[in-house]
């Protein structure tokens, strides 16, 4: 519940946007980032369907690389 993941904004409609990461699409609210200038193509950190912060493309890519590495090793 508490882990936020970086996603890329693909389309914006008001406070709602569509985000994508690792081939998965999600509807995400930008309501908590209304003070920021966000546009399609930007990366945001998404938690329970809300973008909580803008992140750089670099940070998003690095985070995903490390998550992939980690989750690849997980055995449940």
């Amino acid at each position: 519940m508490c882990l936020a993941v970086p996603m890329k904004i693909t389309a914006i409609d008001g406070y709602q946007c569509t985000c994508e990461a690792r081939g998965i699409e999600r509807e995400v609210s930008l309501f908590m980032l209304q003070h920021e200038d966000v546009k399609a193509g930007d990366h945001v950190l998404v938690h329970v369907g809300y973008a909580i912060q803008k992140v750089s493309d670099e940070e998003a890519t690095e985070t995903w690389a490390l998550f992939d590495e980690m989750l690849g090793e997980e055995h449940v």
Partner: peptide
């Protein structure tokens, strides 16, 4: 239920 990271979106939902 949730800590700040989860409760803030609940607040946002109501604020909106």
């Amino acid at each position: 239920a949730g800590f700040e990271t989860t409760t803030a979106p609940v607040a946002a939902m109501l604020a909106e």
